[in-house]
Simulated assay, not measured.
Amino acid sequence: MPGLGHVEPGGPPLVTALSDTVTLTKISVGPMDNNAYLLRAGGQPGAGVLIDAADDPERLTTVIGSEQPAVIVTTHRHGDHWQALAELARSSQAQLVCGRPDVDAIATGAWVEGLVGVWDGDVIALGDESLDVIGLVGHTPGSIALAYRGGPVPHLFSGDSLFPGGPGKTGSAADFATLMDDLEHKVFAEFDDQTVVHPGHGDDTVLGQERPQLPTWRARGW
């Protein structure tokens, strides 16, 4: 049975109102079922934010239409999250943003210039509103999540750091421990159970569904 915020690989986008002013378009792109998210601030042309120009630049261009985003955010350095970044950067004047420790890897891999590194405490403008940046070390050194708090419930765009059923893949026990620490302190301790999590692949979840599993994740080590 399809889960929360389900989109089919290669299928049509899903459009959702996050607040009275902000809409979200979610689309699955590429062979790894990557989610790309387009946030638009109503009535403010050119104020949008695209999260993960992952693949299928033609489909993303169709979703974007004539109203180019002001910012393109890459949640982390893994190549399946930036395959369309260079092409979309060339066709727009968008500012390119990623987590500070992943700047060099993304710039080199995607062949893009002018990447701006962000981390805890930074904000990304979304029209008259903003997205809060949260650094989550573990899946990669510079993975980030983005939080939108302007609607009835918070929305967290977690990249590959948090999914339904657990944290993202890590390469060592130390990386797993770091990611779990960041998730517990920066996400679960700061956001309520109604917070919707929009991951880098697959369906969405809510923190209240995941919170009881934290001890299980710790115990199993992944």
Rank of each mutant, 00 (worst) to 15 (best):
K26D: 08
D160A: 03
V15D: 02
L115G: 02
V63D: 01
G42R: 15
W111A: 12
G165M: 07
W217I: 01
E210W: 10
L115Y: 11
K186P: 02
F188L: 08
G221W: 00
R211S: 06
P212Y: 12
F157W: 08
L115V: 01
T16Y: 09
Q93N: 15
S130I: 01
E210N: 10
L38G: 09
G127Y: 09
G10A: 12
A110K: 04
W119Q: 13
T205V: 11
K186S: 11
Y148A: 13
A107V: 14
I72V: 05
G200Q: 08
V116W: 06
W111F: 12
G165R: 07
G5Y: 15
D55N: 09
I27F: 05
G79V: 15
I124L: 14
D80N: 15
L24C: 12
V118H: 06
R100T: 03
L38Q: 06
G11Q: 13
F163V: 08
P45F: 13
S28H: 03
Y148E: 05
P164N: 02
A89G: 07
G150M: 05
R77T: 08
T75F: 00
M180V: 12
G79Q: 13
R218L: 07
I72H: 12
Q95D: 14
L50F: 01
L162G: 08
Q95I: 14
F188P: 02
A54Q: 03
H155I: 07
T108E: 15
S172I: 10
S143N: 11
H139Y: 01
T62P: 08
A174N: 04
P164W: 08
G159K: 04
A173L: 02
G79D: 10
G99D: 09
L162C: 07
